[in-house]
Nucleic acid binder design. Structure first.
Lengths: 141, 141
DNA sequence: ATTTGTGCAAAACGTTTGCAAGGCG
DNA sequence: CGCCTTGCAAACGTTTTGCACAAAT
């Protein structure tokens, strides 16, 4: 939170009521969420528009405080990255549960491939789609 | 093409003029393409609606003949998978050029992680975002 | 003849934008 | 005070849908 304030000020951006509220909510969430979920979880208590949610998510991701994922279905998923490392996502396409795995080994391989081609990595996203144990079991029946 | 006909028949689906045309076009494309690009490349010569393009892409991907990628920006990218293996994508966010890399090693790691958690993999998508050599050079100036 | 597929236009969906009003520094 | 930010509603671009007609088996 202090970090957010500093990062904003550093760029001549403002530490507004809305940004505070949104950031607080995001940092308290462990899971992946969509802009709409965030909006719905806030609108009861606060008067914040969808536009502000989207704009704030943009700011936070450009500050490196939030990660954006394209898990398909035309909808974006966000995730706060308070310190934790990048990881793989195993996405159950039946119940949309998302299981995370560390990706250190894979990251090494990717970094290697990138440097071979002078590709400057900004971020990466490893998404495995399929069925989680439960849903796979249900299907068999 | 013969494969497509068989796969369709096997499922009681029809081998229509439109599906033929679309499949032919797709199999002749090497690169990733969007539904709209496909539509535009066909509409001059044939009378095929956008709806049919989308519906056919769904069919082809459920038959495993086409891979779908969510490279962000709210737009889907498709790729025909005539035999070739899955691979990583390095996506230049400046010029949208997509470089492909084999991912055998990574696939091994992923398969391993999946089996540890009884996750049944359907497909995976490894996307690295950043700047290609050219665009990175331009930025520096 | 039956059933699946098509074209069209309208709707849906998530996201972005223009603008006037509001709030932070 | 000046500039950044907000809320609203309208616009956007892509994808999906309902329906009547057409085509494949």
């Amino acid at each position: 939170m202090v970090r957010l304030k500093e990062e904003l000020e550093m760029r001549g951006l403002k530490f507004t009521r809305q940004r505070k509220i949104i950031a607080q909510k995001i940092f308290s969430m462990k899971k992946h969420f969509t802009a709409d979920e965030l909006y719905n979880s806030l609108k009861k208590k606060y008067r914040i528009s969808r536009a502000t949610i989207y704009r704030t998510l943009d700011v936070l991701s450009s500050l490196g405080l939030v990660e954006v994922h394209n898990f398909g279905q035309g909808k974006r998923y966000y995730e706060s990255i308070s310190g934790k490392k990048s990881h793989c996502h195993f996405i159950c396409t039946s119940c949309m549960k998302i299981i995370e795995f560390p990706s250190d080994e894979i990251e090494k391989i990717i970094t290697n491939m990138a440097s071979q081609h002078n590709f400057k990595i900004n971020r990466y996203s490893i998404n495995v789609y399929g069925l989680c144990e439960e849903c796979a079991r249900k299907r068999k029946k």
